[in-house]
């Protein structure tokens, strides 16, 4: 294949990866930003979305209802987790990390028990192959990119134009002040946690026709989301999308021309360094 072919493929892959990654990481970023906690179980919400989508695809209704049901079901589960676990821990950063590690294993093992160890495929709801001069490409991947873009836009609208968004931004900026102005911070937290999980589940459901559902698929999604969120800055929607693209395209380029494992090592180290060098820590005023 010619150099243009390689480059075009890398960019195309990068764009699709970027959109999916942005959607996956968005929930983590919201939770990071508004609630100031690190949700290690985020990848498992992604996996749950994929598994639920598979389940729906075996029902008469087919795959499409899953795109509504998966985020709702997973969101509800996350809502419960917030009420039963996180709130009782008073959202202390370190305790919530330990608790969400616990949730990670509980979700993963329950899925293994109920759903089994298999990687199960789902037929894409729309399928066509695009034939470029150098290679062919999946049309559904472009559809996924499009839907992700629409969802990112919708989230932005919710954040900037609705009362809920206003409450969320207020809580993010100053929790006590928001409370003083009558925002029910508790309720906002529960909603944000559910919304974050729902977005992850949505991403999982969307990619299942590309990737298949498997009970161990969450860890990679989690690590990639971490990288994106840290690079993009917490709670920043624009930053998350930009970082997702940067990671998506550079991963596409580096792994087309070099070793993909090396690409992952380099990206991980770079992000760790960014985090170290960012003064003030992850949560701004935290750490004093």
């Amino acid at each position: 294949m010619s150099f243009e072919g390689h480059l075009f493929l890398a960019l195309l892959e990068g764009t699709v990866t970027g959109f999916v990654l942005a959607l996956t990481a968005l929930g983590l970023s919201l939770v990071f930003g508004v609630m100031r906690i690190v949700n290690v179980a985020h990848g498992e919400f992604f996996m749950l979305g994929a598994v639920i989508a598979w389940y729906f695809s075996t029902l008469p209704g087919g795959f499409l209802p899953a795109l509504v049901a998966a985020p709702l079901l997973v969101g509800a589960a996350a809502f419960l987790a917030d009420r039963l676990v996180l709130r009782r821990l008073e959202y202390k950063p370190e305790s919530t990390i330990v608790a969400t590690i616990g949730l990670l294993y509980i979700i993963q093992q329950l899925v293994l028990t109920v759903y089994g160890p298999y990687a199960r495929p789902v037929a894409a709801p729309v399928y066509f192959r695009l034939d470029f001069p150098w290679f062919g490409y999946s049309g559904y991947k472009l559809v996924v990119a499009g839907v992700s873009a629409a969802l990112l836009g919708a989230t932005w609208l919710v954040m900037s134009r609705t009362t809920l968004g206003l409450y969320m931004r207020a809580t993010q900026q100053d929790r006590e002040m928001a409370q003083a102005f009558g925002v029910s911070v508790d309720r906002v937290y529960a909603l944000v946690f559910a919304l974050g999980a729902g977005l992850a589940a949505m991403a999982g459901a969307l990619v299942v026709p590309i990737q298949q559902a498997h009970y161990l698929m969450g860890l990679d999604a989690l690590l990639m989301s971490f990288i994106v969120v840290i690079l993009g800055g917490l709670g920043s929607l624009g930053g998350t999308v930009a970082a997702a693209f940067l990671i998506g395209v550079s991963d596409g380029l580096v792994s087309v021309f070099f070793s993909p494992t090396l690409a992952k090592i380099v990206a991980t180290l770079l992000v760790a360094l960014v985090l170290v060098l960012r003064t003030g820590g992850l949560f701004g005023e935290e750490g004093t």
């Binding site: 892959e13 290679f135 990737q211 298949q212 087309v256």
Partner: peptide
């Protein structure tokens, strides 16, 4: 790995046989 298109790009054009051993949940992809 969850996406493989980039690897196919590195298959030389004069390849007569593609020999694949891809154990793992990503095989359908």
């Amino acid at each position: 790995e969850t996406s493989f298109s980039k690897y196919f790009a590195r298959v030389p054009a004069d390849t007569e046989v593609l020999y694949h051993v891809m154990v793992g949940p990503g095989v359908l992809t």
